[in-house]
Design a protein around this nucleic acid. Sequence first.
DNA 1: CGTATCTCCTGCAAGC
DNA 2: TGCTTGCAGGAGATAC
Length: 289
Amino acid sequence: MPELPEVETTLRGIRPHLEGRRIARLIVRNPRLRQPIPPEMPERVAGQTIRSLRRRSKYLLIGLEHGSLLVHLGMSGSLRVVTAGSPPRTHDHLDLILSDGGILRFHDPRRFGIFLWISMSPEIALVEHPLLCRLGPEPLENDFTGEHLYRSSRSRRVAVKSFIMDSAVVVGVGNIYASESLFLAGLHPARACNRIDQGGYERLAETIRLVLRASIEQGGTTLRDFVNESGAPGYFAQSLRVYGRAGESCRICGTLIRQQKIGQRSSFHCPHCQPQAIDAGSAAFFDEE
DNA sequence: CGTATCTCCTGCAAGC
DNA sequence: TGCTTGCAGGAGATAC
């Protein structure tokens, strides 16, 4: 399930194969993604040189001479670089064929992904495109702080897990990493976000960064679908402390990990390490230090 | 404005 | 064995 680390892994993997290359043509096998691919898209992008690649939230922005490609992997999407002649498999919906023979292949069984040409440059799209302009800070950049979380949460009362998964608050924290960072910060996922003090949010901002960085280093989390540009899985799944471990023992205290629905999403926590109310400093991660 | 719910889609696992 | 059902989930759209 592509969250920020998986998208970052994909970006780093495909960049050297794309930057500076010319697009020979675009083959659309199935235009029915989350937003349908317009029939004129192949002629719009053919012949253009790829100038830049960047990530914003879980979106990839591929800068062309005229406009950009806006790509989202949804929850089952992946991008691979394959060589000419490699046969497409089921759900290989798009091929971006480069003039050097390489092919960027978009695979997405559940078709929640997005692959669009937009007329704006990446720089303009970041501030003006409706899918990008309302996004919160990047968790691995300097404007994401505990203070930002604290201030943003004062007027709200949703569960803290739903709060950090809100892309207007901070981007890139999906279901897996939300559970993981709350565990390390010692915060119960169902706690009302306005009932966490600034110290709690300082810890949480730190563990969000920690978890995302660690996952990027391991090439992302592969539960079922995710593969990198070469088709290889990520290895962060073996580092997960609570996600998907309901009924198993907490790696810190041995208490059985509990699963509950929060905001329609499965959540995992350790009842001992993440009590409903905690003393400052009782967080699992900070106790390890 | 904040919150909760619905929706898209397919693959897999569980239950009968 | 083969059916049905439920679940997984990013995030926009919608209703209140």
